[in-house]
């Protein structure tokens, strides 16, 4: 079982006491259900705040949001009582309970401050139901934007990462290649990829290929540099060992240099991901008339602030999802060395 949070510890204490009297009763007394009950209360408050006061504006999803909040509250309460029977899901729920409390409280405050009393200026700070409305009513457009962004990002990132990796290995391995590529890298690399925007958009046949190029560029530079430094920092002793055991140069590259450099490569991939997101959004705002960047731009142009927040939330979920995938891949590939970069 996990040993990371305080709520786990209190849960364990509750379980220890369970032998004496019914577990749930004991836990209720000892406060072991505190976080779960607070979660329920916070989300109940959110739902109630939606219904209790009149909306200042004309939003169609207020009741729906309230029902959703009550549902979450009910699930939280059920989950709290049943956490012991839910196994891994129960443990995960318990660990996240404090966050669920915070989220519910935040939404309640937000609801009151926007839709109900207008403490925050209205068009700029839409209430939760306005954002939910975007997700229900503007879903196709948002969905198409997501698809467009993911396609563009994935294509550019994979091309950039592959080229960067190959370049990095080559210059790390061969001094001749290094002689020629290194100065070019020094000269071009530090330039922000967005600086190439004007060039890319009139040189490439389509704005899509131009954006792919820019994303690949933004990804390629950190991946190249880190792969290179990874390969260059492989201890000579590794090569000595492999050579005395009969390794040929191809073996030294594929089975010694690259695996040894992999932790560095992943740092490069991580950095490349960050900078390529930035390029993606800018490219979509300026050139490509599709994708989340463009959606943001469009929403801002029409003063559709709820759409803007909705797109921002989706975007941050996508970016953090991409990084999570990258780190999961890394942890799987580098079981021998966990936690180079924390996420």
């Amino acid at each position: 079982m996990s040993t990371y949070s305080v709520s786990d510890a209190s849960a364990a204490a509750g379980q220890a006491a369970a032998g004496v009297s019914p577990g749930w009763l004991e836990k209720l007394r000892s406060g072991g259900y505190g976080a779960g009950l607070a979660t329920g209360a916070a989300w109940l408050a959110f739902g109630a705040s939606c219904l209790y006061w009149e909306d200042l504006g004309d939003w169609s999803r207020t009741n729906g949001v309230a029902i959703g909040a009550f549902l979450i509250a009910a699930l939280a309460l059920l989950g709290t009582l049943g956490a012991d029977f839910l196994g891994g899901a129960g443990v995960a729920l318990r660990r996240r309970a404090p966050w669920l409390v915070a989220l519910g409280s935040f939404l309640t405050l937000w609801e009151i401050a926007t839709a109900k009393f207008g403490w925050l200026p209205l068009p700029f700070f839409p209430p939760p139901q306005a954002i939910v409305e975007v997700y229900t009513d503007d879903l196709p457009k948002l969905f198409n934007s997501v698809i467009a962004s993911v396609k563009l990002q994935l294509g550019g990132y994979i091309i950039g990462a592959a080229i960067g990796f190959l370049t990095g290995v080559s210059i790390g391995w061969s001094q001749k290649v290094g002689y020629w590529v290194h100065p070019v890298l020094r000269f071009i690399g530090p330039l922000p990829a967005t600086a190439w925007l004007p060039f890319a958009f009139f040189t490439f046949p389509s704005s899509w290929s131009a954006s792919t190029f820019l994303i690949a560029l933004a990804t390629g530079f950190p991946v190249t540099v880190l792969t290179w430094s990874g390969v260059a920092s492989v201890p000579n002793a590794y090569y000595d060992v492999a050579r005395t055991l009969g390794a040929k140069p191809s073996f030294l590259v594929l089975k010694v240099a690259i695996p040894a450099a992999l932790p560095h490569v992943f740092v490069g991939l991580f950095m490349g991901l960050g900078s390529s997101f930035a390029v993606l959004v800018v490219a979509e705002m300026i050139g490509v008339k599709a994708g989340l960047g463009w959606y943001l731009q469009w929403a801002q142009g029409w003063a559709a602030y709820a759409n803007m927040y909705a797109a921002l939330i989706v975007m941050s979920l996508l970016c953090s999802g991409a990084i999570t995938v990258l780190f999961k891949t890394r942890d799987r590939l580098l079981v021998w060395q966990k936690g180079v970069v924390k996420w």
Binding site: A237, Y238, D240, L245, G246, P259, L262
Partner: peptide, 18 residues
């Protein structure tokens, strides 16, 4: 180097990823 002459080095230098 040739595999007919094998060395056990002063440091074990195992490959940590294997």
């Amino acid at each position: 180097p040739h595999p007919s002459r094998v060395v056990v080095f002063q440091d074990p230098t195992l490959f940590p990823w294997r």
